[in-house]
Computed example of a mutant assay.
Amino acid sequence: MGDCLPPLREVIAAHGLSASKSLGQNFLFDEQLLNRIAAIPGDLSDRNVLEVGPGPGGLTRALLRAGAQVTAIEMDRRCLPALAELGEAFPGRLTVIEGDALKMDHDALFDGAPYAILSNLPYNVGTALFTRWMGGEAWPPNWTSLTLMFQQEVAQRIVAQPGSSAYGRLAVLAQWRGIARLAMKVHRSAFTPPPKVMSAIVHVQPAAMPEGVSAAKLQAVTAAAFGQRRKMLRQSLKGVAGAPDALETLGIDPQRRAETLSIDEFVAIARALTR
């Protein structure tokens, strides 16, 4: 089952597909590489998997071969016939939904059951989707892990440590109640067409959420602090109600800049504002 599929290049040629620049598409053809990506979150046998932007179905194949039950959201209808053929090769294991993933309730697609998210995300929606998956007030989320391909620069911002130039809102969002790691770098030459930049895969698992902290408050603090990252905290946070008092109460020097604060310090500020 699924082993008689033609090579991806032939599928793309047969359906006259080319990567759409406006949709941020870049196709991956290397099946060994795709199998390695599908293996990052562990055994997928009979597990629900959400894939956003499957395109012609390169990663989808690898997920199906790994035994996953895949729900794929694709807004490029040119790709739907190729995905339909894939569904026929793996009967009952692939559900394709046409539409915009940013406008959908992903939990509802699985009736509240847990699911893993694996995706070679289109570059133009990757950060928005990641922010949404990591940003909900309800925690732990219904998703069990995120395995996502980003531009390498974005991936490095997600796993960055305090004090580094890459450290910012994405790092705090990913790490204050999650465990984020850089799982694999992917050379630009692996894609068709090759993007101008290198790519990398980030793997994130939910961790315990600190008590007494609102996710919205934390996001407000980090947005203000990193929105003017060259300014001292007393300047950047003055528009956040209660933040100057919180700095004083917590003994955080208001002359420090955002990139010097640890994630625990950001959490402490948000906790003080949540009370």
Rank of each mutant, 00 (worst) to 15 (best):
L250K: 11
H187D: 13
I37E: 07
I97H: 11
T192M: 04
L59C: 01
L121E: 04
R132L: 01
T249A: 15
S45T: 15
T131P: 00
Y123K: 03
M149C: 08
Q175D: 03
A223Q: 15
W133L: 07
G55K: 01
S119W: 00
P193L: 09
S189N: 12
V197G: 05
A84G: 07
E259R: 05
T71Y: 05
A215L: 12
P7L: 05
F110L: 10
A68G: 15
L218A: 09
D253N: 13
R275V: 13
S45E: 15
R9Q: 14
A113D: 15
P114A: 05
A174Y: 01
V240A: 08
E248N: 13
K185T: 14
V267L: 09
L146M: 13
S189Y: 05
G168P: 11
A19T: 03
G16P: 08
Q156Y: 01
G239V: 15
L237S: 09
A223T: 13
R61V: 07
G136I: 03
D46T: 13
G135T: 10
W143D: 02
H187F: 03
V186A: 02
L86S: 05
E31M: 13
R47Q: 15
Q69W: 11
N124L: 07
A72Y: 01
M232C: 12
V70T: 13
Q32V: 07
P244W: 10
K217W: 06
A190R: 15
P141K: 06
T144G: 07
F90G: 05
A207D: 12
L129C: 00
P41E: 04
P193E: 08
A14R: 15
S22H: 14
I97R: 15
P56T: 06
A66S: 15
R157H: 02
V202M: 04
L233N: 06
H203A: 04
G178E: 00
V186N: 03
I179S: 14
A215D: 08
Q152E: 14
L17K: 08
A225S: 06
N120F: 02
F130V: 11
V11P: 00
I201T: 05
Q69C: 13
A224D: 09
N120W: 03
I73G: 00
P7V: 04
N26V: 05
E265I: 11
T127C: 04
G24D: 06
L17P: 02
A72G: 09
V240Y: 10
R9S: 12
G87D: 05
C79R: 03
K231H: 06
W133M: 04
T60H: 00
F150S: 00
L8H: 02
L63W: 09
L273N: 05
S145D: 09
S119G: 07
A160M: 00
G92W: 12
A39W: 10
F266D: 10
L261K: 03
L64H: 14
T249F: 10
A241H: 14
R229L: 10
L80F: 04
G239H: 15
S145M: 06
L23N: 02
T249W: 07
P162H: 02
D245V: 14
L50I: 08
